[in-house]
């Protein structure tokens, strides 16, 4: 046991995720020996985060003001909403630069064993947002694991009566890998979710026959 302040710091650090008693002690002594200005900056960063950062009232992403920058950005499309589990998923999709619509953060996934049902997520707020007539599509971007899939199933069932197009992120083979190393579940999903690579091209006949002179009438 150390005296007062040092022990208190060790105890507080030890409560952080992934930090055990020995790590807490090492970090505490690093703080003691480090440049005072650096440590004041760290302390300020922590208190500022707790003071200023809250959740966006529209999409529940982390934000420093009432609404987040993504909800305020007028260049983004209002037509598509991408539903994700957590704020870090917003960042992951933003990094891909493939999406320019709005987001909705659920705050987790349905997990009955841990007592998390639809009521604990921001589902009701999502339905309220869909009253906006500009919205034409919802992309369900929950995690491709069991809880994420169950959440997507629940959302599809709840949102289908609204008559808005609902799509789910594709799942399949990672880019840059070998087919033979894919696991069975992923490979099965990739086959299930295959897409038509030439949607507009007509089926090519094996033997070319001369086109009939008149418009063929449908036989059915």
């Amino acid at each position: 046991m150390y005296e007062g302040a040092v022990q208190e710091l060790i105890d507080e650090l030890g409560r952080l995720p992934g930090i055990g008693p020995k790590s807490a002690q090492r970090i505490a002594f690093h703080i003691l020996e480090a440049d005072p200005q650096d440590m004041v900056r760290l302390a300020q960063a922590i208190s500022v985060v707790k003071e200023r950062v809250k959740y966006c009232t529209i999409c529940f992403n982390v934000s420093e003001s009432e609404t987040c920058t993504l909800c305020r950005d007028e260049r983004r499309s209002d037509e598509i909403i991408c539903v994700v589990e957590e704020s870090k998923d917003v960042v992951a999709i933003e990094r891909s630069r493939a999406f320019s619509g709005r987001y909705h953060v659920l705050g987790g996934a349905i997990n009955p064993i841990n007592g998390i049902g639809p009521e604990q997520l921001h589902v009701r707020e999502l339905i309220a947002r869909l009253g906006d007539e500009r919205i034409t599509e919802i992309i369900l971007a929950t995690d491709p694991n069991l809880e994420g899939e169950a959440t997507a199933t629940y959302l599809v069932r709840t949102l289908r009566p609204l008559g808005i197009k609902i799509s789910r992120l594709a799942s399949g083979l990672p880019v840059g890998g070998d087919l033979e190393y894919a696991d069975e579940v992923t490979l099965a999903r990739a086959i299930e979710g295959r897409r038509n690579t030439a949607p507009s091209a007509p089926a090519a006949p094996l033997v070319r026959t001369p086109l009939p002179a008149t418009e063929p009438t449908s036989s059915s």
Partner: peptide, 19 residues
């Protein structure tokens, strides 16, 4: 799991079984 996640009532019933 593949079949259960496609059916929400079955998923919740299955979760109660596992617990």
């Amino acid at each position: 799991g593949q079949a259960l996640v496609a059916d929400y009532p079955a998923y919740t019933a299955g979760a109660a079984m596992l617990e």
